[in-house]
Amino acid sequence: MDRLLYLLATGLARGAVFALFALSLVLIWRAARIVNFAQGAMAVVATYVAFAVTGLTGSYWLGLGSALLAGAAIGFAVERGVMRFAPQGSPFSGVIIAIGLVMVLQSALGILFGQQHRPMAVPFDERPIMIAGVPVFSPYDLFVLVVAVAVMAALALLFTRTSLGLQLRASAFAPEVSRLLGVRVSRMLTIGWMLSAAVASLAALLLVPTELGLNPHSTDMLFVYAFTVAVVGGLDSPPGALIGGLVVGLVISLVTGYLGSTVAPIAVLVLLVVVLLVRPGGIFAAREARTA
């Protein structure tokens, strides 16, 4: 029982990060109809920025802020500098360009900073929080959960309650009509990319300290799992990303705890296959998946 509680808590904390990253993928998908395979690599660049800033100033919080800014800046640069050139005719040119971008960013980081893992410290107490005598969370895990939930709530508010959110949604779903109504669709697209990349950078920044340390490949698995989450939840659905994230986080944690860590990727694959066969557009797909 203790064991189960513990695994559930761990899975929840990890799942929150997956959900956040998956949400960033959903944002881009909704705005640009592109699965951004470069999201992980872009986020890791922003995390390097945060690492540098924290190293220079000694402040974790300045690093966190700079990661968000850097993430937005990278989103801007990628949208304006690269993705604009994706030919519209071919359905997967966006995916292929994004994959090219992953290669460019990761190898550039490798050339500049080398392959070694750089430890990232966090300003939190290492002592665990006990519930009923069972250590469930470290304070950092709690911080991760709170931040993830807060950011998701803020995004929900942004999209449903503000004029900017309305414009973002409008230009994603009906670009021509929105343009006629005076929405600057192109600018909305760029804002969507910036927002998404910033969220992804935050997720990466939250995850890296729990792993070996920062290196150019730090977000490889995060991307794969978050992508699974987004597909499981439905690429069109932000609530799907949230719930999918928690489901995948819990599945990985429970499978690792009870069956062994080697089985985890297989479990994720099985989950993906089952969901896709039952609902090819993801659990929360409102309608049949569009032709990508």
Binding site: D2, R3, L7, R14, L212, S253, G257, S261, T262, A264
Partner: peptide
């Protein structure tokens, strides 16, 4: 307990050993 290099999260294993 065993871990695989591709998964940099050993919380479940360490938890099991502690238990």
């Amino acid at each position: 307990e065993r871990y695989s290099v591709s998964n940099q999260d050993v919380t479940a294993q360490i938890g099991a050993m502690k238990a």
